[in-house]
Design a protein around this nucleic acid. Structure first.
Length: 575
RNA sequence: CGGGAUAUAGCCUAGUGGCUAAGGCGCCUGCUUUGGGAGCAGGAAAUCGCAGGUUCGAGUCCUGCUAUCCCGACCA
């Protein structure tokens, strides 16, 4: 590509709305432009990087027997009603009607469509396993899109779905995909961790996230300093079980007047007691049924764990009316003792650690002292619903958990029969018996991965592309465009590198040297091949390695093979 | 969805109720220059987010709307 013809424009100044390095640099390098909140134009430089990532994805998946398809991104509501998600998928599912008044949505994910497609073709166990993927634009009407490609509303995703005869086979597939993802992100030159993850809305009971480690990451990861355990904070197991408090220490229940003290902080200040002497009682609506959730006052409820422990599709805070209906009091005075209406109680293990807690009295402006589980109330379910945090013990060894920030670039799920059951995706086994297909699903945020690569690889001058994702692997920079021999040498080298299969650009613009250097650093070509009049007299050119800043003088004859070797090694991850 | 902020040329900004809305980057023309975003001269480019209102007079004040960004909640 001749840079003089490239559709792009670099900027010296950072647009106001760009907050994190990848967003700023992609904008400044002329890779993306915003069209609306969370919706971007991908210019040629961005598109080239995206396509390179897609190629890596395709190679690694096809190597493992996956097949590519392309499914519609406009999807009929009927399928979503069938799976049940039309009802509880929130407003991020963009719904609309066609001219006939039929309900449709823009696909945020494709479990429904793929399951429908597969069930119409699946007849016999002989056909399985199937592992089908696509790379396509998705739409999620995020409440708060941000950070450029990191969290867009419209984004490119690779999504794949596997169908196996049974759980055992499906778990083999899961491991295969886990390996594929590790290979893909390694080839991209990314430092990442695969971590245990919650399954959230998509369901299933086993999942790993692939997290690129970066300061600007939105996810919190906890990993052991001794063993390989690592998990998203939503999922990280807390080492805590049911304690058996000494009932001889139980004191008599006492009602106290606590005007205007609703939050744990307020009441803790009012009674001059530490927050861990309280039990936080919060009413949730879990799959439309109200549940009182209890946790010690100094801890927070991990809704993701609540969802898992309850096997629920949705977990939401109850509104004030529901709270009033159940407790008979305003929000802020709920407690497990003296509820107006009997509801299920879900308690964290922490409420058994210690005795004589303070809870709401289910009466405005009153709390109860010396409340103890077993004597004063019982929990229907007791379990771990807290967040783990830095410094906690590792659940697998004697190590201590450390905290990291991560960008989730991929996630693999074992789905089991969640969708095949609701959508009746079955096959006949050897004995002619109908069986449910066992599914898995696997996603990669394509744009996000490219952005994450920039987050991890940049400096104050610009992007430092891993060779595998660089829009161009190298650029030839003839410095003196008024000198015939410099221009000539540039043209020849450019042609030679192209012939060798190097994805190379030629900066043939009538610009000064400094200008071209700044642009090249910003765009982040892994190699700059600098052709200056002075070194050319010695038959040499200079090669600058963007990653290290090293410059080498290399003879004109040898430079093409040097470039080729360097890039091959980079892409193979050998350097 | 709660809280906060912003909106002036493609980008970054100035503009304290008063003359023809100013500067930098970028763009075009010419000259000069050619190893780290050069210099000089000239030029094009603005419905000051939209709609009302107050005022002799509004980019500036008021009201409503819209869009965008930030913090939080949320997020396969």
């Amino acid at each position: 590509m001749r840079i003089s013809q490239l559709f792009y424009q670099t900027l010296k100044e950072v647009p106001r709305e760009a907050q994190i390095p990848s967003h700023q640099l992609m904008f400044r390098a002329g890779m993306i432009q915003q069209l609306a909140s969370g919706i971007y134009n991908y210019l040629p430089l961005a598109h080239k990087s995206l396509r390179k990532l897609e190629t890596i994805i395709r190679e690694e998946l096809e190597k493992r027997g996956c097949q590519e398809v392309l499914l519609p991104y406009v999807q009929p509501a009927e399928l979503w009603e069938e799976s049940g998600r039309w009802g509880y998928y929130g407003p991020e599912l963009l719904r609309f009607k066609d001219r006939k008044g039929g309900d449709f949505c823009l696909g945020p994910t494709h479990e429904e469509v793929i399951t429908d497609m597969v069930r119409r073709n699946l007849k016999s166990y002989r056909q399985l396993p199937w592992n089908i993927f696509q790379i396509q634009t998705k739409f999620r009407d995020e409440v708060r899109p941000r950070f450029g490609l990191m969290r867009g509303r419209e984004f490119i995703m690779k999504d794949g779905y596997s169908f196996d005869v049974d759980e055992e086979a499906s778990k083999v597939t899961y491991q295969k995909m886990y390996d594929a993802y590790s290979a893909i992100f390694s080839r991209c030159g990314l430092k990442f961790r695969a971590v245990d993850a919650a399954t959230g809305n998509i369901g299933g009971d086993m999942s790993h996230e692939f997290q690129v480690l970066a300061q600007s990451g939105e996810d919190l990861i906890l990993s052991c300093d001794k063993c390989s355990y690592a998990a998203n904070v939503e999922k990280a197991v807390t080492v805590r079980g049911e304690a058996t408090p000494d009932s001889s220490l139980f004191e008599e229940v006492e009602k106290v007047h606590t005007p205007n003290s609703k939050t744990i902080e307020e009441i803790s200040g009012f009674l001059k007691m530490d927050t861990n002497r309280f039990i936080k009682s919060i009413v949730y609506v879990i799959d439309e049924e109200p549940v009182l959730v209890l946790i010690r006052g100094d801890l927070d409820i991990n809704e993701s764990k609540v969802q898992t422990i309850m096997g629920a599709n949705s977990v939401e805070l109850a509104d004030d009316n529901t709270v009033l209906d159940i407790t008979g009091a305003a929000t802020g005075f709920a407690g497990p003792v003296g509820l107006k209406r009997k509801v299920k109680i879900l308690a964290d293990y922490s409420v058994t650690e210690g005795v004589n807690f303070v809870t709401g009295a289910n009466e405005n402006d009153y709390h109860l002292k010396n409340i103890n589980m077993g004597r004063d109330y019982t929990a229907d379910i007791l379990g771990d619903i807290t967040f783990a945090s830095e410094g906690d013990k590792c659940p697998h060894c004697e190590g201590i958990l450390e905290e990291h920030r991560g960008i989730e670039v991929g996630q693999v799920f074992y789905l089991g029969t969640k969708y095949s059951k609701t959508m009746n995706c079955t096959y006949l086994d050897k004995d002619g018996k109908e069986q449910l297909a066992v599914m898995g699903c696997y996603g990669i945020g394509v744009g996000r991965t490219v952005a994450a690569a920039i987050e991890q690889h940049h400096d104050e001058d610009g992007i430092i592309w891993p060779a595998a994702l660089a829009p161009f692997e190298a650029v030839v920079l003839p410095l003196q465009m008024n000198k015939e021999e410099v221009v000539q040498a540039g043209e020849e080298l450019y042609g030679k590198l192209k012939d060798l299969g190097v994805d190379v650009a030629l900066d043939d613009r009538e610009e000064r040297a400094g200008f071209k250097f700044k642009d090249a650093d910003l765009i982040g070509y892994p190699l700059q091949i600098i052709i200056g009049a002075r070194s050319l007299e010695n038959g040499e050119v200079e090669v600058k390695i963007r990653k290290t800043g090293d410059k080498k003088n290399i003879s004109l004859d040898d430079v093409a093979s040097f470039v080729k070797d360097f890039l091959d090694k980079e892409k193979a991850g050998l350097s």
